[in-house]
C-alpha cells in the first residue's frame, strides 16, 4: 500500500518485490501536506476564505503535489514491472475529478465506498468520451 511520500519515491524497488500497488490517498494526502485530516476543521474555512486552496484535497486529489508523487510512483513501478496492477482505495476513488486523474495516470482500478460505486461507473465512462 502506497500511502506515504517515501514509498512513492522508492516505488521502483518496492514494485520489484510486490505484485500490486494500491494508493491510500487519504494518508498520502495527510502525509504529503502534513495536514491531520481530523483537525482540518479549524483552519480549512480560513484557507478557503483566503483562497489559499480552492478545493479540499481530502475530497479531490491534489494533482499538483500528491498527484505528482503518484505519477512518479506509477512511472517507476511500471518501469520496474511493466504489468503491475495499480489502483487507489482512498475516498477519492468515488470522486469524478479524481477518477479522471486516475485514468490519466493509467491506473487499473479505483475503489470507493459502496454508495459511490454507481458514481464511479459513470465518471469512469465519461473520462473515455
Amino acid at each position: 500500500m502506497i500511502e506515504v511520500p517515501r514509498a512513492c519515491l522508492v516505488a521502483e524497488s518496492i514494485a520489484k518485490n510486490a505484485d500490486f500497488f494500491s494508493f491510500g490517498t487519504n494518508d498520502l494526502t495527510q502525509t504529503t501536506f502534513g495536514f491531520s485530516r481530523d483537525d482540518t476543521g479549524s483552519f480549512f474555512p480560513h484557507y478557503f476564505e483566503k483562497d489559499i486552496i480552492s478545493t479540499d484535497p481530502f475530497e479531490q486529489i491534489d494533482r499538483e503535489g500528491v498527484g505528482k508523487l503518484m505519477s512518479l510512483a506509477v512511472k517507476d513501478a511500471r518501469a520496474a514491472k511493466n504489468k503491475i496492477s495499480i489502483g487507489i482505495c482512498g475516498e477519492h476513488g468515488g470522486e469524478p475529478n479524481s477518477i479522471s486523474f486516475c485514468k490519466e495516470l493509467g491506473l487499473d482500478y479505483v475503489s470507493c465506498s459502496p454508495y459511490r460505486v454507481p458514481i464511479a461507473r459513470l465518471a469512469a465512462a465519461q473520462v473515455e468520451l
Partner: peptide, 15 residues
C-alpha cells in the same frame, strides 16, 4: 450505467 460499463476501461471496486 450498463451503457457506461461498455465505455469505461477503469475497473470499479469497493471499500
Amino acid at each position: 450505467l450498463s451503457w457506461a460499463d461498455k465505455i469505461r476501461k477503469l475497473k470499479i471496486r469497493t471499500n
